[in-house]
Simulated assay, not measured.
Amino acid sequence: MISPVVATAGSTDPASPLVVLLHGRGSHEGEILTLAEHLPVGPEYAAVRAPIPEGPGYAWFVNRGIGRPVAGSLRMSMGWIHGWLGLVAPPGRPVVLVGFSGGAAFAGGLLLDDPRRFAGAAILYGTLPFDAGVPTTPARLAGVPVFVAQGERDTVIPRDLQERTWDYLTGESGAVTVARRDPVGHTIAAPALAAMSDWLPSLTDTQP
């Protein structure tokens, strides 16, 4: 695979917490980097371009339906981004994942595959990658901080996957989950973004 294209904002200190921003299907790193303007000062924000061309943008995996990754494709992309993380985030540097839509599924896959690698994850308006080769067993995320936001009017992500994600993250996963639903469609609600901004400092030891 190609080397990652990464756009950054925030801290330039290589020891600062790293918040990895993962865009949705058909989007690109420049769009999701704008979230950094609304998030706490202190971390480095790194928006990574997904490796697979998709329409006007890029995707994290080949899917077999919306929110349903092909296991081999997901595994390949996870290995690819782990290679990058190994260079920019050595042991001891906190890494938080923030994914929107298809990026949420990818963030969820990374977290489920290796829960201890990450300080936490935000799953925004997406689904976990169920039945795609990563474990979703009870207590898999025991003690891991997770933020999940969904739109009550979201008709892009299948409702059954939204419900399954919500139930797993607030229940048997064992995660320490902050969960909210707002009266929006497939878009980030301003109150959800504010809540995530309040949540992040507890993971990165920064001040909002």
Rank of each mutant, 00 (worst) to 15 (best):
P43W: 04
E44R: 15
E44P: 00
Y45M: 13
A47P: 03
V48N: 03
V48G: 05
V48T: 07
R49C: 08
A50M: 13
P51F: 14
P51A: 11
P53K: 06
E54C: 11
Y58W: 15
W60D: 13
W60S: 12
W60G: 12
V62F: 06
I66K: 00
R68H: 06
P69A: 12
P69F: 05
P69Y: 08
P69V: 10
V70E: 15
V70Q: 15
V70I: 14
A71K: 02
A71R: 03
S73Y: 04
L74D: 08
L74E: 09
R75Q: 15
S77A: 15
S77V: 07
M78L: 12
M78I: 12
G79A: 10
H82K: 03
G86Y: 00
G86A: 14
L87R: 15
L87E: 15
A89T: 10
R93I: 02
R93H: 01
G99A: 11
F100M: 14
S101P: 05
S101Y: 07
A104S: 15
A105Q: 02
A107S: 13
A107L: 06
A107Q: 03
G108S: 07
G108T: 10
L110Q: 03
L111V: 05
L111E: 04
D113K: 06
D113P: 01
D114P: 00
R116D: 15
R117W: 00
R117M: 00
G120L: 04
A121S: 05
L124V: 13
L124M: 14
A132R: 05
G133S: 13
V134R: 07
P135Q: 14
P135N: 13
T136Q: 10
P138C: 08
A139S: 13
L141Q: 08
L141F: 03
L141M: 07
A142R: 13
G143L: 01
V146R: 01
V146E: 00
A149V: 10
A149K: 00
A149Y: 01
